[in-house]
Simulated scan of single mutants.
Amino acid sequence: MSETAGRPLRADAERSVRAILEAAERVLAEEPGASLEQIAAAANVARTTIHRRFASRQALIDALASSAARQLARAVDDGRPDTAPPLVAMHRITANVLQVKSAWAFALELPSDPGSEAAALHEDINHRCLAVLKRAQDDKLIDAAADLDWVRRVYYALIGESLRGNTDDTDPDTLATRIIDTLLHGAGPHTRTT
């Protein structure tokens, strides 16, 4: 649930904030310099509604970054990174993350201010990713000598490249299988494990 000044929002205000954030994602992805008036029009709300919910354009952008980061964290949680078998967790998390990243590409590319909610969420996601990779390493899916931070960075790059200009295969499960297969086996001949 969203909050304004520490108070939970009513259901109608929550819907309004969600509509504003969704519109901001669409509008700013097309035109990063778009005005609050353009975002309000896309959200089907008055500009004053945006000003009631967000003190400034930057506050709206910060809220957009935090909202997208929360959705990304939920996508990771849904993959059961601590309890599912590592290969299952990696596949499910990857499919979930692909869906969130494709829906919130602009917001998730915003730089996070140190100390912000979005920065803290991204840091937590990085730690959870490393924990899943460590579990995969313990299960001998990843070489024991592999630098897991490097593996994490390669994994993130594979996800990013899968989303750039991908028009042939947009099914998240198919892309997740391809990403995990490439991460664990590279491009050489092998027997598939997923």
Rank of each mutant, 00 (worst) to 15 (best):
S2F: 04
E3H: 09
T4D: 11
T4N: 11
G6A: 13
P8R: 07
L9N: 01
R10Y: 00
R15E: 02
A19Y: 03
I20R: 09
A23W: 01
A29Q: 07
E30V: 15
E31R: 15
P32E: 13
A34I: 09
L36V: 15
L36S: 15
E37G: 13
E37L: 11
Q38P: 13
I39W: 14
N44Q: 14
V45C: 11
V45H: 09
I50Q: 14
F54Y: 11
S56W: 13
Q58S: 14
A59D: 12
L60K: 12
L60W: 10
L64V: 15
A65I: 10
S66T: 00
S67I: 11
A68W: 03
A68N: 06
A69P: 07
Q71C: 11
Q71S: 13
Q71K: 09
A73D: 00
V76P: 04
D77T: 14
D78I: 12
D78T: 13
G79W: 02
D82K: 10
P86A: 01
L87W: 10
L87D: 12
R92T: 02
V97E: 07
V100I: 03
S102V: 13
A103T: 08
A105T: 07
A107R: 07
E109A: 09
E109Y: 01
E109S: 11
P111Q: 05
P111A: 05
S112Y: 02
D113F: 02
G115Q: 01
G115H: 06
E117M: 07
A118I: 01
A119K: 08
A120T: 13
L121K: 04
L121Q: 03
H122A: 05
E123R: 01
D124G: 02
I125E: 06
R128K: 08
R128T: 08
C129Q: 02
C129L: 04
A131K: 03
V132R: 00
D138W: 03
D139G: 07
K140H: 10
K140G: 11
D143Y: 12
A144P: 14
D147A: 10
D149R: 10
D149I: 10
V151N: 06
R153T: 00
Y155R: 05
Y156V: 00
A157D: 10
E161A: 14
L163R: 04
L163M: 04
L163H: 04
N166H: 12
T167P: 05
D169T: 15
T170E: 06
D171G: 02
L175K: 08
R178L: 09
I179K: 07
I179A: 08
I180C: 05
L184S: 07
L184P: 00
L184T: 04
H185K: 04
A187K: 08
P189K: 07
P189V: 11
T194Y: 01
T194F: 02
